[in-house]
Nucleic acid binder design. Structure first.
Lengths: 188, 188, 188, 188
DNA sequence: GATGAATGAGTATTCATTCAT
DNA sequence: TATGAATGAATACTCATTCAT
């Protein structure tokens, strides 16, 4: 029992670190956030940080992992829950908005992608994995609501690409038209 | 005369610096390229670099500026030159290809956007400006080839968003369907 | 009874620690072996290590102590056992070989000496003690096999110095002639 | 001219750094001397140190190189200058003493060897090179003063081994008999 | 006896920037 | 114009040691 309790607290501490890191990454990007920043934010020593994470990239990986899992969960919820009596554009608009809102949360998405691209590593694979899972989930969800003329695979790909592009544009402050104007030409 | 000649050579030197910087930014990203790297590559001293650029972000700005101008020029060429007898999807596919011929050029795009987002500054405005110009140009070009049912403004926006998203996906190594499969549901 | 049993196990644990430390010191040197390395190797916690050894240098001392005792024992065996009908050079060659069978063991010798020199302490005295004992033992052994013209004290000193030098040279990869070519000018 | 002057001062600065490093290495060993120590000692910033030496091991290499060259020069002087009317033991005693004195200067010799052994690299080769040169030089010198019965190569090897061993012993505080008692059994 | 957690001082290295000449 | 030299603040990472439980 004691052991399990200890494990639990250990996980809690890791979670606390991830939370703080996520918060700071959102503000400044991973590259511009030092381990000292994170330790300071948590009121712990840098040494303690290293007790839980033996390198900065390990930490970045976990931040990414958890972030991606959260997005996947949201997508899954949507697939299970959407009301098929509505218009396709309207339905998809919800996915888009949900993912977009989470995604554009402080540019984290872009920062993590940047890390993946510049420092190669496992991160790229992790993000790739997430994207192919999303592609599958979206396809499955779209199959139920699209007319037979549309290929769910292609539409899913378009939507994913637009989500990524939209996140970047939003971080750049480029204005986007509302979804109910943008989506119809694609899905209807 | 002498002055004008000096100015000219001054501009040449700036251009040389920008070229070297661009080359290195493509390879390693702006953040991971030191001024020493650039100076070395050119065979000049860091001091000389500072004679032409009083800070690293000034240099990054100029690199971005020139890069964006070049992309705009490519887009303009397309508008003037495209053959309106072809299918819309096919035509737009060419835009995409001309703008980001190589993955490495796509990487530069992301790197510069990253700098713009993380270090705020004038860079963001510069990129914004480029994007709105592209939006206009695309709209104008699309007006000639789209059926009346489609709104060129919305389609232009979709295409631009997909270009940005596509560049990112390609840098991540996410497989994309060929444009001529992706675009039809949107433009036809 | 219980107490004695506990003591016994306590000694066993210390011995296990010394064994692991020795193994790692041979590979990486004492300076480059962290207490975490040793604890990991043993599958115990760093805390436990500190239960048995209150500082790293205490541990190094014990490693040295046991190592030196083992070498002394080998030398003693030689003195008791050598066959005086053989040539002196041949006999002494055996001493050398038994003491430093492997280069790795030779490396340990140097590493420990380095610790003794850089961190002064008791270590230097401990090693000194070993060397004077070896000097005595060698003298005694040589007395039996050398011709009367040779002073066993001086010859013993020469041999010990050459052993130390030889160990260092071997660790450096400096080629050495075989002992039976080197020793004759000295002992015969 | 100005260039040559600048080069010269650059070399002077490198020399100043090497001198300070040597001094501190003698006191504490290379491993225990931080670059901050050296910079402080010189009253310059760590950044400046890196202007001249791009890594610590580069600096250690140069310290070793210069130290080895100095020893080689001393040996050369001896070969040119010794008086062949004296007894062999007496002559060699001078080499031994000269090298020994320089060598035992603050344990530097051992520290550098330690670095070579633990951190492999180019250092080992550099030291190896020095040793083989010394072997040759000693051989040449000995050929002139030894009786025909002695093989100069073997005697040179013995002497070098004893120098290395003697340096270590001296750093450990192990007493050595005077050379005129130690050498005769070897060279006469 | 044993351990997990926490620490803080230290270490090599990087880099944009400044400035006298 | 051009540069070599100097800097100092920052950064990721290491490790012996302590201590409450």
């Amino acid at each position: 029992m004691q052991k399990s309790k200890q494990d639990y607290s250990n996980i809690d501490n890791k979670q606390r670190i991830i939370d703080a890191a996520t918060k700071l990454f959102i503000k400044q990007g991973a590259h511009n956030t030092s381990l000292a920043d994170i330790a300071n934010d948590l009121g712990i020593s840098k040494g303690t940080l290293y007790y839980y994470y033996s390198s900065k990239s390990d930490l970045i990986f976990d931040v990414t992992d958890i972030y991606m899992k959260r997005l996947s969960a949201k997508l899954l919820n949507w697939i299970k829950g959407h009301d098929s009596r509505k218009q396709p554009a309207e339905i998809i608009s919800v996915v888009f908005k949900t993912m977009f809102k989470t995604t554009s949360r402080g540019k984290l998405h872009i920062y993590l992608i940047y890390e993946a691209i510049t420092h190669n590593t496992a991160l790229k694979n992790r993000i790739n994995l997430a994207y192919s899972k999303w592609q599958e989930m979206l396809e499955e969800g779209l199959r139920k609501i699209l007319s037979d003329k549309k290929d769910p695979a292609i539409i899913a790909e378009i939507i994913l690409t637009m989500i990524t592009g939209g996140v970047v544009h939003s971080a750049l402050g480029i204005k986007m038209s509302p979804m109910n104007e943008v989506l119809p030409p694609i899905v209807e």
